[in-house]
Nucleic acid binder design. Sequence first.
RNA 1: GGCGGCAUAGCCAAGUGGUCCAAGGCGACGGUUUGCAAAACCGUUAUUCCCCGGUUCGAAUCCGGGUGCCGCCUCCA
Length: 483
Amino acid sequence: MPVNDTLPQLQVYNHYRRRKENFVPLDDQRTTMYVCGMTVQGPPHMGHMLAFVAADFIRRCLEYLGYPVYHVQNFTDIDDKIIARAQELGCEAGELAQQNIDLFFEAADALNIRRAHVYPRVTEHIDEIQAYIERLIEAGHAYAAQGNVWFDVRSHARYGELSGRDIDEMRSAGRVELDESKRDPLDFALWKAAKEGEPAWDSPWGRGRPGWHIECSVMSMKYLGQTFDFHGGGRDLIFPHHENEMAQSTALEGDFVRYWMHNGLLTLDGQKMAKSTGHFFSVEEVLSEFDPDAVRYYLLRGHFRHQMEYSRERLAEAAAAYDRMKRALILLEETLADSNLGIGVAEGRTSPEGLDLEAAADRSLAGFRAAICDDFNGEAAMAALFELVRETNNYLAGRSRTVCDRASVSKVLDVLREGLSVMGLFEKVGRATVPEELRALAEEREQARQSRDFARADALRDQIQSMGFCVEDTPEGPVLRPV
RNA sequence: GGCGGCAUAGCCAAGUGGUCCAAGGCGACGGUUUGCAAAACCGUUAUUCCCCGGUUCGAAUCCGGGUGCCGCCUCCA
């Protein structure tokens, strides 16, 4: 997708500086993006998918604007929760992780999330993690004690910068993992000594496994370099995860992330969805009831930085809006496929109404682009598209296809498709093929209507409906649509 | 206790100094169209942006003070 000079400057809200900034990639050949992925102790829930749909949307915007994106998203495939859950189920931790990774991909595919370029896993980077920990120890930022290795938060002047915390003011003693071998209660684990029966790797400090935060430092820098453009994840990761990650990654050399982005959390009854408390809706549950593409649209509503309350009612509401757009697309495609389209209009001429419609399409596209360039404002971007839908319907309503302007109609469809592809929506939606037998039934019903046998016509309509299609009578004849 | 976020119509939601007497969607009501529907179109649905003060020629937007909700400070997208 070409970038051109008429596009507005992209602005992004950088959590690190707490303000919108002009986006300038480190390398204009490659915009780098790291997204904190799941700890695969269980299947993905809606809150996870909100984060990944948001990241996917950001990536699509960047690509649309002409920034080639290199996208890395990790899997945390070993940690306390996974070990505990696997023991409960009586399976290997690795097996459990793999199952949930498969489920993640299933959900991501359903929601039309593009695949990242790399999905690094902790268990595949143990050597690199150990090597980095050694360097941290040598540099005096970490220390080994009783088989654990702790990051020394007091050794790093910038600790607390990202989350806006002051080490001395944190009332966290007693809430943080208690361990006598720590010099400061806030010191966090780079390497955890294994208990009996736990999956473990040999290390200079004894058998154990990586702490939670070190993987993201090591893997992001391995695939993207010491300094890269975007780092995304949920707000709940700001502290301690991202704070710790930043500390680890900046302790030895250079800058780390250039633009930190955090999505708002999905709540349920006003409380954050969280797998650890069982307070969530699984993706599976939701996708069994709603069109996945409509679910994606739902997750894309509002601004991703804001918290969003999950409810079936809101989802149904979003699905209704989704249908409005879908109908408009189908109507446009049907119109363009109509052999009578524009036959009553002189070649090369566009009616005043057609010119107005084209102007509306231009406004819509400009509005859409301005919106996504303003910190990826998907809500405002969709509004620009919906305005065009209204103007298009207005143009098409009651106008014979013979006097419609093909070029204008075609332009509208192009604009809508262009915008919607950035949203990652309706990419598989087009005109439905109607089975021959249904076409015959519809024809039969039309004859019944002509002879004013409405009882029979309604019976046929019910029959068609029971076969998954609804009949809409238009001035051009009946049209069948999948329900 | 500390740090951060949010509060806009019946509901969801964009908008962070004038172009806003406030987008877009859902819903509701009235009308057009229809055999009836469906869809679509037209109109109505916030003189007002949680409250109180202040700054300004001008504020939903800035400042101060409240109130309410949420997140983080422990694993978490």
